[in-house]
Amino acid sequence: MVQKSRNGGVYPGPSGEKKLKVGFVGLDPGAPDSTRDGALLIAGSEAPKRGSILSKPRAGGAGAGKPPKRNAFYRKLQNFLYNVLERPRGWAFIYHAYVFLLVFSCLVLSVFSTIKEYEKSSEGALYILEIVTIVVFGVEYFVRIWAAGCCCRYRGWRGRLKFARKPFCVIDIMVLIASIAVLAAGSQGNVFATSALRSLRFLQILRMIRMDRRGGTWKLLGSVVYAHSKELVTAWYIGFLCLILASFLVYLAEKGENDHFDTYADALWWGLITLTTIGYGDKYPQTWNGRLLAATFTLIGVSFFALPAGILGSGFALKVQEQHRQKHFEKRRNPAAGLIQSAWRFYATNLSRTDLHSTWQYYERTVTVPMYSSQTQTYGASRLIPPLNQLELLRNLKSKSGLAFRKDPPPEPSPSKGSPCRGPLCGCCPGRSSQKVSLKDRVFSSPRGVAAKGKGSPQAQTVRRSPSADQSLEDSPSKVPKSWSFGDRSRARQAFRIKGAASRQNSEEASL
């Protein structure tokens, strides 16, 4: 019999049943779409005989028809080659250093092939080196495509196609095609072959870009420019304004007297070369007005044109410092986490200390709560409330009815002989401070409620009492009544008793 458990639990079988086999339907690529829901599959020993999904071999995947050992070796080799080519560490840098020397040698020989004295001697060596480079780069490109299958997102032919569309893979295939075209054109020995050789060798310069396949330098440059984009835009904007204004004023001053400034384009060329401190010297002002304007705008514009270099330099320094700090933080993070875990385990398992309490023990206690009866409008029989619902239920009951529930009420002091009981919340009678006064009792026990209740009776009109401690106690149990005489010590004692009862009640409510 096959059962599914969608909550991750395992159904224990009877003692008479045989052992169960467990598997996940959602992990089987050969299962139909209706059953690939991630549910837990529990099947008996007879299920494989019936041809269940556990008995079927995997229909898809890279190692579907391969033995386990061969499949493990296949995956291990794939991961190894992918890490060597895409994430070089340790001795893997030897291969990348060899590729760099190969590319650099091709670049140097290409430069010498353009010089007439070394053209014949360098062409033969360059031809052999180009063949070696094409073979190495071609094999490396196909190995990269194959090894990318170790990543989940690059599996299958669609994943390989996605990997081949990456920018550096596109550069690799462009350089490979250009190198093959250069060799094919150079072997023909005609004029067209020579011109094609010179034009296609430009694409071989892109080999130097592939040295940084992970794009660390470009990411660093982009992060620095993005972090200081506002400062760079401000400096370039002001420098551009200085360039336009200086070129226009010098053009007006030199026009008609200097042949170097016949057009405004000549003035812009002079301004750009001057403000960037290049100074070719092919154009320069000759009149005193033009020289004065050139000197003034040079002092202003050079500072703004040189400002981005300082901004980028400081940004690079701060970014490198931040990377070093992050690297040290990552080195200290795992030991710190292990130290915290060890300290907590020692703290939680220390049996010699009796003052340690688990944080979840508070929620494991069961509280007896009286249940409210809507018919009699009273609190009758009580029941046990689950631990997770205790706090919310108690808050709702307290807010609606005004009752305070507590588990172990402390012993109440008995009323003394000299001070009789003053009210239901005086704190001297046991069992009276455990409940709050309802809204109805407060209204009818207050002086205003009594006056409103007995407004029509003649006794209420004739008998008038001065405010005393009895009425103030019933009005607000948490307030201290004001004494009408300064020498009345009994009223002071009563006030301290009320304060103590109120503080105890607040602490009990907070504990609930």
Rank of each mutant, 00 (worst) to 15 (best):
R333W: 07
L107F: 04
K230M: 07
G290V: 15
D212V: 13
G159E: 07
N258Y: 11
R210H: 06
A306T: 04
L268P: 11
A253T: 07
H96N: 02
M211V: 03
T114A: 00
A196V: 02
T349I: 08
I238L: 00
T234P: 02
I205V: 08
L101H: 09
Q341H: 14
L200P: 02
A185G: 05
A265P: 09
Y154D: 00
L85R: 09
N190S: 02
A317T: 07
L292P: 13
I278N: 15
T263A: 10
S314P: 04
G271V: 08
A253S: 03
L81P: 08
D266E: 11
G222D: 12
S55C: 03
S352P: 00
L268F: 00
H96P: 02
M1T: 02
A62V: 06
P335A: 06
V182M: 03
Q204H: 03
E231G: 13
T217I: 09
G301D: 13
D282V: 15
A306P: 01
L318V: 07
R207Q: 13
I209T: 08
A337G: 09
S358F: 04
R291S: 11
V250L: 08
G189V: 02
N350H: 05
R325G: 10
A343S: 02
R144G: 13
T276I: 08
D259G: 04
W360C: 11
A235V: 15
I273M: 10
L339R: 08
P420L: 01
V320I: 01
A267T: 12
R201H: 02
T263I: 02
F304S: 12
G281R: 15
D212E: 05
E231D: 13
D212A: 14
R210P: 09
F305L: 15
I278F: 14
A265V: 10
G215R: 13
K219N: 09
T287N: 10
L206R: 14
D282N: 15
A193D: 05
P285L: 11
P335L: 15
N258S: 11
Q188K: 02
A265T: 11
D259N: 04
P335S: 14
T194I: 06
M208V: 00
S199R: 08
L339Q: 08
G239R: 09
A193V: 05
P386S: 01
G281W: 12
A337T: 13
Y264N: 15
Y284D: 12
T217N: 12
Y280H: 13
G301S: 10
K283E: 04
F261I: 01
N350I: 05
E130K: 11
V225I: 01
I340M: 07
V225F: 05
G8S: 03
C169F: 00
K331T: 12
E322G: 10
L312S: 03
E231Q: 10
P430S: 06
K283R: 00
L221R: 11
N350K: 00
R214W: 09
L243V: 05
P285S: 14
G159R: 05
V175L: 00
S223P: 15
G159V: 05
P285H: 14
S195P: 02
H228Q: 05
L351F: 04
F329S: 10
T274M: 12
G279C: 15
G315R: 07
D259Y: 07
V250G: 10
N79K: 00
F304C: 13
K255R: 01
S247P: 07
I311N: 04
L307P: 04
E119G: 04
R198Q: 05
N190H: 06
L351V: 07
G271R: 15
C242G: 10
A294G: 06
A309V: 01
M211R: 10
L293P: 10
T296P: 11
H260Y: 03
R353G: 09
L356V: 04
L203P: 03
H228Y: 03
G256R: 14
Y362C: 05
V250A: 11
D266G: 10
R213Q: 07
L249P: 13
R214P: 09
G9D: 00
T276N: 06
H260P: 10
A306V: 11
T217P: 05
A178V: 03
H328N: 15
G313E: 01
T277S: 05
R213W: 07
F261C: 00
Y127C: 09
L243F: 07
E254D: 12
K319R: 14
A294V: 04
S195C: 12
P411L: 06
F248S: 02
A337V: 04
L356R: 06
Q204R: 09
Y280C: 11
Y237C: 11
S122L: 02
D355E: 03
T359K: 14
M1V: 01
R210C: 08
S247L: 12
G418V: 01
D355V: 08
K230Q: 03
A185T: 03
T114I: 08
G281E: 14
Q341R: 14
G290D: 14
I278T: 12
R207W: 09
R333Q: 00
G279D: 15
W269C: 15
M1K: 06
S247W: 13
F104S: 00
W344R: 06
S342L: 09
I273N: 12
W269L: 12
D212G: 01
R353H: 06
R144Q: 01
G215E: 13
R214Q: 04
L388F: 03
V225D: 14
K162R: 01
L197P: 04
G290S: 14
I340T: 12
Y284C: 06
T378I: 01
T359A: 08
L206P: 12
A147P: 08
D172G: 06
R332G: 13
S113F: 07
